[in-house]
Design a protein around this nucleic acid. Structure first.
Lengths: 136, 136
DNA sequence: AAAATCATGTAATATAACCTAACATCTGTT
DNA sequence: AACAGATGTTAGGTTATATTACATGATTTT
């Protein structure tokens, strides 16, 4: 969290740069947002700011569009992938928890969590793809 | 060199983002440019666009400023560092050349070059030779 | 075939972000 | 006190992006 680490979820790029990086038009990018394939952050002044992850998504969208998939299809694909990621995370977390907690502690906590009936926050475990973009 | 690779020298960030990333004010950033500590690219519309390298430089500048070094000092430090980089590259290149050429080839080439030394304009020859030391 | 839908283009208008330049302020040095 | 270095502030101008509405070509549905 110190000053200069660039996270892949950090909103860094204005739409103009994203256009260059992805070869999409502003119209397309906004359209994909409108249809909830991406959700870039906004500045105070309401400008969209895109993260490296957003750019990754846009590149995937572009690929799929080029392959003839329509937006609804892309949305489904993303949903599946998201689910995969989430279950991976849950498994990882479960493993960790099993390592750290005894069984009855676990039962106690699970009960408490069910009472609370909240949804979990999906944190960002979405790394890897982008490393190929950095050349040195 | 395909569309979407992100190089460290690629101009990506507008000044607003650089402010956040470096904790410098726009005034400071422009001032450092004015004094040639950085030279960010410009868009068609004359906006500054900064690369990851630029940001690194700005962070170094900030560190040095915080340590009490003034801009003249920073400029000197950067010059020294640049010189180091260049000599490193020259050494690397020299090593490569030595690997690639046998001794007598080397002697032959040297002799040929000395014969020609007077005839053509030396400085431009030397410049041509140097060009391969710079990576862009 | 006509109508509807999808993906994108284009135009109009508003405003946020950036530009340069000038002047102001603070601090440390001569 | 006067000066130079570094930064803040303000003003007026330009560029990039925002939203909205309408247009268009390609598919899909009726």
């Amino acid at each position: 969290m110190s000053g200069s680490e660039i996270r892949r979820t950090m909103p860094l790029f204005p739409i103009g740069i994203v256009m260059q990086l992805t070869d999409l038009t502003a119209r397309q990018i906004r359209y994909y947002e409108e249809h909830q394939l991406i959700s870039p952050a906004r500045t105070e002044g309401n400008r969209r700011m895109f993260s490296l992850n957003d750019i990754d998504l846009l590149l995937e969208i572009k690929d799929l569009i080029d392959q003839g998939v329509n937006l609804a299809g892309i949305k489904q694909l993303f949903a599946v992938k998201e689910k995969e990621v989430v279950t991976e995370e849950m498994e990882k977390e479960a493993k960790k928890v099993r390592r750290e907690l005894s069984d009855d502690e676990l039962r106690r906590i699970l009960r408490a969590e069910m009472m609370q009936a909240g949804r979990f926050n999906r944190s960002s475990l979405r790394q890897g793809d982008m490393s190929r973009f950095f050349k040195s």
